[in-house]
Structure formats: C-alpha cells, structure tokens
Amino acid sequence: MHMADALISPAVGGTMWATSAGLIAWCARKVKGVCDDRLVPMMGVMGAFIFASQMINFSIPGTGSSGHLGGGLILTILLGPHAAFLAIASVLTVQALFFADGGLLALGCNVFNLGFFPAFVAYPLIYRPIAGARRAGGRAWTAAIVAAVAGLQLGAFGVVVETKLSGISELPFGTFLMVMQPIHLAIGVVEGLATAAVVEFVARVRPEAIATTPAAALGQRSLRPVLAGLLVAAALAGGGLNWFASSHPDGLEWSISKLTGKEELEGSGDGPRGPAARIQEKTAFLPDYGFRPAESKPAPAESSAGPGAGPWPAVSAGTSVSGIVGGLITLIVAGLIGYLLKRGGRTTT
C-alpha cells in the first residue's frame, strides 16, 4: 500500500513529510539517548532482514495467493517502537529511492502509515497488553494477529484519507474505503500469522536473543511519553480532519496558496491572483481551440465544492489541440536538449 507521488497534493505530502520527519528526529534522539551502541548495527541489520525477507513468500492455503512479512510489527517487537520506526522509515526510503516503490513526496505518508501505526499504536496499545512477556503460545499469536490487523487497518485508512484530501484521484471516499479496508483485513491476518510464527521460532531456538534484544528496555522505559504523544497526535489529527472535512477541496488548495503565497488556483474568485493567472487570462484567447472550464462546467468532484469555488485551471485545463501540440513539441524539445547535452557530454569526456 505504498502511495505514489502522483496521487498526492503538495499540501498533504508536505504535511505528512513534516510529521514523519519530526517523528524521525524524535526517535533518533531517543535511540541515541539509550546509550546502547549495540542498537546501531542491530537496527541496520534488522531493516535489511525485513527487506530481504520480503523476497520470500509463503502460500496461503485455499486462495492461490501468497504472503510475506510486512515488517512493522515484528521490528517493533524486536527493537522497540523508536528504533523500529527508524528502521521502517529507512526501509521505505530505500524502496522509494531505488525501486521507485512509493514516491518521494509520498514518502512522508508511507512512513507514517506503515511506521507510526504499528510502532506507536498497535504495539504499545494492543500487542504488549495482550502478549505481555510471552513470545510463544496462543496469547502471543492472538496479540500478533490483532495488532497486525489493527496496524494495517489504520494504515489503509491513512492511505484513503490522504488520497481523498489530495483530491487528485476521483475515487469516492466511501468506495475507496470499502475496497481498502477488507483487503487489508486479510493482509493483516496474514501479517499477524507470519509475525507470530517467526517470533515464536526465535523465542524457541534463541530465547536469550529475544530477551536481550537491546530494545526490550527501550520500549518499556519510554512507553509513557509515547502514549502522551499519541494523545496529542490524535487530538491534532482529529482537529485537522474536522477542519479538512468542513472545508471543500478547493478551500484546502486555496489556503495552501495563501500560506505559501503561490498561486494554486488560477481563476478562483477569492484567491489572490498571481502572475500566472494574469498571464493566462491575457493570453486565453483561442476560443476555437480551448475551452474555458468556467463554461464547460466543473467535474462531479467539484460539485461538492460549492458555488464559491472557482473552476479548475483556466486555459490549460481546457487544453485541446493547441495544448496537445504544444505539449508534444515541448516534450520533443526537452528530449532534444537532453540528446544534445548527451552528445556534448560525450565530446568532453
């Protein structure tokens, strides 16, 4: 459920980036404060382990499909929330950079969805209370399954909310939710089973390895601040969601444009008019070729936006032949520049 850049608005992406970056900084400080140097290689190797383990699948009986370890929960069990969050974030970062799996702008969302929920919600609030110190047996399995399901449900919900707030996909909120939540219920159960099986195996053959994992202490010591932070985060998120919910998508864009001083919404009635809008207005004269969306009335998603909201971008949105031709030509020019640069580069090297 890695989100891609293309589906996220800068506002949502930026907010989630800031949130995740803040969490990373906080966790980094925590981990450094533990003074257990063993964590440094342990976190790195565990992250690599999760990465590598995802290449190996098991078959899910009766379905013909297969599953693998997602990693958030097991990392938290092994390393404690803070170190695990850093490890998850690093796995996602490498995936985004090297495998184009999840985008750069979306990285903040992905780290939050796949890291925050298992490490700071599912583990402290579900896994630990149920499993206690047990790592094998029925309770440990139940704890792993319930915690994994909860973590993934929250993560999936995060994906839907972030996509919706970005307003780039047309998928209606309800439909998207109805698709994502059940799928992730199944994924969560599989994840929980895999986590429980692996943890139990390690607990059996190497009990001291799990008991002496450097983070066992780390998790305990800092549970209270986590819970406090969680409450604050929940309050903030709740407030934020309310604010988002009460304002239509254009309002979000508009407020961002106000914040950044950039013009996001050309033609919007109440937004400040930037140079771009002015230029486009002046030059929007090709009636034969272009539509002014003001005339070709807004798309369904915008009907919810209310009458106050302006139409989406003027000339460019109504692009037709001129836009397509222009687009193709600039693409070719860009390509040509690349080609020339390449030839230039060849001759110099």
């Binding site: 850049d5 780039i168 950039k262 460019s316 222009g326 687009g327 600039t330």
Partner: peptide
C-alpha cells in the same frame, strides 16, 4: 505536484 489536477501539456517542459 503543485500543478492543477487536469494539467497535462504544461507539465511537459519539466521533462527537461
């Protein structure tokens, strides 16, 4: 990312 959602052609120069 900051381009309006229906934008296609104006994105092309960015391929540079």
């Amino acid at each position: 990312m900051s381009f309006p959602r229906y934008e296609v052609s104006a994105l092309m120069p960015l391929f540079a």
